[in-house]
Design a protein around this nucleic acid. Structure first.
Lengths: 239, 239
DNA sequence: GACTTAATGTCGGTA
DNA sequence: TACCGACGTTAAGTC
């Protein structure tokens, strides 16, 4: 049975005991209450008093959530060291790391709830509909790119990075395929352009290299950019 | 006082009551227990049984967290409709939206803990060290770009998008400045290149346009790309 | 709603 | 560890 330990309206000392003891143990700890948050590292931020939900994960991640937004208002990535203390009667959670030097400090005016959960999770997420799946589809049915297209390699290295699918057309010309699982903008065109240029330099100067962007759709600007650079677009819906 | 309602090891009906009643009220609801998660929308995913922490926010966001990672293993963005029901004796949380059509379903084998929190948070995050701050710094001290640089506009529109800082050098040549708060790779060079090309087309064909990338540092590939495109780099540390 | 870009992006793979 | 690109990226500002 998944073990749970909770306290409602604990005093700072009791909340500190629960949090630090369980975090040490490798449990997932949550705290809810009125707090301020200070962050300093790659950037710096300050957040005045308000009610927030703080989560300390066994892997060293820390998350501070407000009532709004999918993203935490403040956080610390996995690998950080957490400490929970009582300073001058207030509960303070600190999470720090080096490389880069970053620190997060949550100071609780009041703690409304503290909880610790024993988490056991061995399951892996099975995700489909990614770019990797699109690549599989192209390799299975190369004609989706164009009749007579022959894939020769995936992740082929160039001076500009790895090409998604590398192959040749029915006339034997080199074809670079860049895959995107969703509608693309100018950035993807630039990426494809860099691969094409790199291959034109790598291979002989005389060899023509075609660049094909495979995606569900493109924006106007991206289409213009493709035209200007002599690159092509093929619409392929994701699986 | 921030109101809190909690249940430890509730039966499905009690957990459902707490969750649905409080979510309806605009409270932040959390559930912890053994569950499976199914997602379908832009992509699709399936997650076998394991212990997870589920958060339902008043703005319609939903987050499913495992013991690892800063990011939730599954989620739903703000604006979704949540429902909590008991189906065949198991607690099921559903979160859906349209445009795009997406659904998330969390089915609890057992619920170890359920909680609801009244959240009141009016504070705004004060963040410094962003690209906007770097722009301010450049406008205050244009010599950081180069002696004699004169900013003329920010966010100047071009056919390729808005330029961070637009100005001219001591010789009257047009200068496009692209700012990055951190070390940059090839993508930022491509971005700058698009702006320069667009301005060279917009302005007269004879007018030379300089492109300057302002960032703490660049990668090797980015530096080579800059050289090949005739673009420049100026190292500026963030504030 | 679509488009473009920033982000303390995060995350995973690879050299 | 740095680099590079994908991500169900998300979020913000603009049109």
């Amino acid at each position: 049975m998944t073990a749970v330990e909770t306290l409602t309206y604990p005093d700072p000392a009791a909340a500190c005991d629960l949090a630090s003891r369980n975090a040490e143990r490798g449990a997932l700890v949550t705290l809810f209450g009125t707090c301020t948050v200070e962050y300093e590292g790659r950037a710096a931020s300050s957040l005045g008093p308000g009610d927030r939900h703080v989560m300390l994960k066994p892997d060293g991640a820390a998350l501070v959530h407000t009532d709004e937004g999918q993203q935490p208002v403040n956080w610390q990535p996995p690998g950080c060291d957490h400490s929970v203390t009582v300073d001058d009667g207030t509960l303070v959670v600190r999470s720090t790391r080096s490389t880069p030097d970053e620190s997060l400090e949550v100071a609780f005016e009041t703690v409304a709830h503290a909880a610790a959960f024993d988490v056991s999770d061995s399951a892996d997420l099975a995700l489909t509909g990614t770019e990797a799946d699109l690549k599989e589809r192209i390799l299975e049915t190369p004609a989706l790119v164009e009749e007579g297209f022959t894939p020769l390699a995936t992740e082929r290295e160039t001076a500009a990075g790895a090409v998604d699918v590398y192959g040749e057309d029915s006339e034997g010309r080199t074809v670079v395929v860049e895959l995107k699982r969703r509608r693309v903008g100018p950035d993807a065109v630039g990426q494809l352009g860099r691969y094409v240029e790199a291959l034109e330099r790598d291979l002989h100067a005389d060899s023509e290299v075609r660049g094909v962007l495979v995606a569900p759709s493109v924006t106007d600007r991206a289409r213009q950019l493709l035209a200007r650079k002599g690159l092509e677009f093929v619409a392929v819906e994701p699986p």
